[in-house]
């Protein structure tokens, strides 16, 4: 049959990791992504890096957005990235980080495999546009 119509939709995991109880930003992003037509899975609060890795692998999301406001990004993000690599999921999952990340840490995160870091004041539209343009081709 020739008439296979592809129905692709961008899937995102919005993840809160570590001891950080502030999920307002994650909720706003989840809602905005939904309204942009993405399918959003929200991890819930206080997840361990392993849990995020498991969810990313099983859900086969295009985009993993990690929200961190605790300052522990240099510890937590590499753990997640390593986990994704272990399951061959890193190369076609775009990892984003949002939250309060000092400028001097941004480059390091990017070296580790994070596609972009969105700090305070980033507009929602900018984030959505970035995802639309950069979601991995599969």
């Amino acid at each position: 049959m020739t008439s296979e119509q592809e129905q692709r939709s961008i899937r995102c995991l919005v993840a809160k990791v570590g001891l950080d109880g502030h999920d307002r930003g994650a909720h706003v992003i989840a809602r905005a992504f939904r309204d942009a037509g993405f399918e959003v899975i929200y991890s819930g609060l206080h997840k361990a890096p392993d849990e995020i890795v498991q969810a990313t692998v099983q859900e086969d999301v295009d985009v993993l957005g990690i929200s961190i406001l605790s300052g522990a990004h240099n510890t937590l993000v590499p753990k997640i990235v390593d986990g994704l690599e272990e399951y061959d999921a890193l190369e076609d999952t775009m990892v984003l980080v949002g939250g309060v990340i000092p400028d001097e840490d941004k480059e390091q995160l990017k070296d580790e495999g994070v596609a972009a870091v969105f700090g305070p004041g980033t507009s929602i539209e900018e984030t959505i546009e970035f995802v639309r343009e950069n979601a991995p081709e599969r």
């Binding site: 939904r34 942009a36 037509g37 929200y42 361990a48 392993d50």
Partner: peptide, 24 residues
Amino acid sequence: TGGAVLGDRIRMASTVGDMDVFVR
């Protein structure tokens, strides 16, 4: 918009870390 928030996974925490439970 065709978008969705998929929130079932949050409730499924008992088996976290066990890859032999595959939640989609």
